[in-house]
Nucleic acid binder design. Structure first.
Lengths: 248, 248
DNA sequence: CTTGACCCTCACGCCACGTGAGGCCCCATA
DNA sequence: TATGGGGCCTCACGTGGCGTGAGGGTCAAG
């Protein structure tokens, strides 16, 4: 009886579905056409549910159950990687949410820029090398989170003012046609570095260079910066490199 | 340009979709009909993406963003809670997958029973009271995970043999018509408890009793046990209670 | 003999998009 | 100045994992 089957915690419809797609076909039918699930069927159902809890697709589950040795490892590995990614993503978001909560308590709405500075690291894993450049070790961003957790409303206001001033400086430099490796742009880059260093996390010239790479390679950063002016991200990138690799 | 927008990490189609459902309408169109996203639009998009990561439906996101100041703090708190839940869930899944992979490498296909013992805890949260009985504190299952992580293939073989023997013992007791509160059944219950205690986690009589409650109240466990014989779960439950509350 | 709780089979709905098809637009190059 | 290649646009149907009826048969109890 589907009665017993439903006691496994799934809906009748789900069983119908599994039957329809051939994932779990009851081994018998009553003369009235009722589905009859044997103990073996129930065992299979249990395995299916276990894998479903791991959030594998039904097709993947079918393959695992059909050809355990070969397919299972692949699927499991893939799923493991997927879940790890999601986990680190969630960590970042948790930090972001905490920030947002505090900012909210203080009556400040975080600007997207700040959101990006703080947690816009979700794609970092796609750029593992740059990420290492940027964060040095994986916990650097937590340092940032710890520091900023203590900031008051006044602090945030000043941080934002500083950041805006820096951005405006870059905008003016671009509009004035100043070269990205000129002294003015380099000074702005250094100002940017010190801004990060002071308010967020220790930012060496080396780390700063890694960050610059991100600004042009990670579309999220690129989009953010280029919102200020077209070509902004590239300009800032060049200025940071110039600042990092040469003295004034 | 949608170009810039796509750089935020979402597909063009997604933007079209958000436009179509009115979640994110670009603030302008070029004369050729191209969507033009302003900085404000991008900010909104970023917020949307954050909430999307929280696995909220787009409709929910729309409502949240529509009702900004009033109860934003509530939403943030909820998001935070959900994120933390989600993360611990993912941790469990990761542990479970690692177990599966190990078991696989050792060439053992875990039986559903073992899978239940190892990581069949996902529904426990729906039965908070029993879960507390079973796990005492929330980290007990992690202890189980830690212990079992070190087991070799031989260990697993022995564990399985022990478990099977215990189950067979119960089956014979039932078939022989022995009462669940009789000495034989109680001995089997005690054997079961020691099995868990030895291989998985410290299992007091009290914890064992909580587990017994689960066996009859949680359909997943019930279905598992009753696969061995009808009425099995109830019998085991009664035997465990008898063993826990009286001496031989 | 009805009643109500099951079961069955279609078959369409849902969400968050993916994936073309068919057709403008725009810039660059031959 | 045609021509190509890469945007962009709007339909519009496909997908996964079911939910949710509609319309009808089955079965033990009253």
């Amino acid at each position: 009886m589907g009665e017993v089957a439903r006691l496994s915690g799934v809906s009748v419809r789900t069983l119908h579905h599994y039957d329809a797609i051939g994932l779990l076909t009851p081994s018998g039918r009553s003369e009235a056409g009722y589905r009859l699930y044997s103990a073996t069927d129930l065992a299979r159902l249990r395995r299916i549910l276990v894998y479903r809890e791991l959030e594998l697709g039904l097709e993947g589950i079918r393959q695992i159950l059909a050809d355990p040795d070969a397919r299972a490892a692949d699927h499991l590995r893939r799923q493991h990687r997927l879940l790890r990614d999601r986990r680190s993503r969630i960590d970042e978001l948790l930090g972001a949410i905490e920030h947002e909560m505090e900012a909210h308590e203080m009556g400040i709405a975080l600007t997207p820029e700040e959101q990006f500075e703080i947690f816009g690291t979700d794609r970092l894993e796609e750029h593992a090398a740059e990420a290492k450049e940027k964060w040095g070790d994986e916990d650097t961003w937590r340092e940032s989170a710890r520091r900023t957790a203590a900031y008051t409303k006044d602090d945030w206001t000043r941080i934002k003012a500083e950041a805006d001033a820096n951005i405006q400086g870059f905008v003016r430099a671009i509009e004035a046609g100043l070269p990205a490796d000129g002294p003015e742009a380099r000074a702005l880059a250094e100002e940017h570095r010190r801004h990060l260093d002071r308010w967020f996390y220790p930012c060496t010239l080396h780390a700063h260079r890694g960050l610059a790479a991100l600004y042009v390679s990670d579309p999220r950063y690129t989009a953010q910066w280029d919102a200020a002016a077209p070509g902004f991200s590239r300009y800032v990138h060049d200025a940071i490199l110039a600042n990092a690799s040469g003295s004034a």
